[in-house]
Design a binder for these strands. Structure first.
Lengths: 221, 221
DNA sequence: GCACTCGACACTGGATGCAATGTATACGTT
DNA sequence: AACGTATACATTGCATCCAGTGTCGAGTGC
């Protein structure tokens, strides 16, 4: 599928997720048309899809890049926790039943190691990206496309708001990835599920600490 | 938002979910235009959204109503289990913290009772619908819009394939709803989560029994 | 000097026109 | 009679066009 509408969707999504557009930015159809060198029709379709994904929001007059209020962030993290735990459990089950290839396991371990390495550098955006890659790899190994898709949506929302201010502490907890990985390698669904849930719980807590000062205010972020 | 595109989306979604269109049916833009008495532009946007929702699938030449293979069904149920458990947990937590109004609790109880009543009639479609309403009420009470949305997507997929063959046994397990409801009323997150997980697990098992004969074949359904 | 109003403009929603393409059918050939 | 090919048609993708509408600014009155 390499039609214009699909292309527009992918390019816009990319721009959204790599911090090229920031939360609150207003997007006009004509501006994007010029930017992407295509007509309004495919651009509109792409915008609608992004709207459906929750990455942009309609303001009655055009669309703006979505920003997540602390409230939204909390909701997203609750969802993420449940989904990630399920992914870890399914991946561990798959491993237990011998349905995971050595290549897949290798990729997971590599992704995990990559997060640790990046976390030690000053490249905050790179570290964030590595973290995302690890979690998406986990989703992939679950063998459940719907789950993968759901997690993809969540992470896209995270990406928009995170990459515009990664400068501040990245709040990564790479060591916990080890617990998830080892549980999967051992083919232990229970442990994998618990480790993933714990991992997300701590990440959410860390986020809460960083934001509890503005907790009572309206959605500023 | 009462523009044509939104309207087209809602009407098509309704038709999809109430069994008016069946899995595998081919949908042509012009046909829908005539049906809905509007131009192709809003219809196209609606179709794209439905595609993004997974309710229809592109075939390179037009779209067809999605059908879920037993594989897909299993994946959807795994996801549903995790999300429903989370919803029950959050709803119970909300109740525990006194954030649930008597009206909301009443609506939940009413929905639960409604499922039981309908299950005893021969109105399979009505019973199915009541079951959906109960689960969506649960999602609502979780207080997490993202979760509600995710569950909405899942159930829409279920609806498409279910309502076209509700004639066969509906596989409802209404009594288990009681366990969930009472746990929520007691404000016991742990118990609510466990009850919801158990409920979905059994439903999935029941479905498996009904379909394990064709388990090995390709996605026929 | 400030506020209110009127008008121009920018932008979106919807419709239609045009070109490209896949499919089905009919005809010819073997 | 069966198979292959060619042509006509159905249908999509994209671009452009038109109408409705909110917004911003300028000008005028108080």
């Amino acid at each position: 599928m390499h039609n214009q509408a699909e292309l527009a969707y992918r390019r816009l999504r990319e721009r959204l997720m790599d911090g090229h557009y920031n939360p609150g930015d207003r997007l006009t159809e004509l501006g994007i048309c010029e930017d992407l060198a295509m007509s309004r029709t495919p651009v509109r379709e792409a915008l609608r899809r992004l709207q459906s994904d929750g990455l942009v929001a309609s303001t009655g007059r055009g669309v703006v890049v979505s920003s997540l209020s602390p409230q939204d962030m909390q909701h997203a993290m609750q969802l993420h926790g449940a989904l990630d735990a399920l992914a870890a459990k399914l991946a561990a089950t798959a491993q237990h039943e011998g349905r995971l290839s050595p290549a897949q396991l290798g990729a997971l371990k590599r992704a995990s190691r990559n997060v640790e390495e990046r976390a030690e550098t000053s490249d905050a955006a790179g570290a964030w990206r590595a973290n995302l890659d690890f979690h998406m790899m986990l989703a992939r190994l679950s063998g459940n496309p719907l789950l993968e898709d759901a997690l993809d949506r969540i992470w896209a929302r995270f990406a928009i708001v995170s990459l515009s201010n990664v400068s501040r502490r990245t709040d990564l907890t790479p060591r916990q990835h080890d617990a998830i990985v080892s549980a999967i390698i051992d083919g232990d669904p229970q442990r994998a599920e618990a480790a993933a849930a714990e991992h997300v719980r701590e990440a959410a807590e860390m986020y809460g600490e960083g934001h509890q000062d503005r907790r009572s205010g309206p959605s500023a972020l």
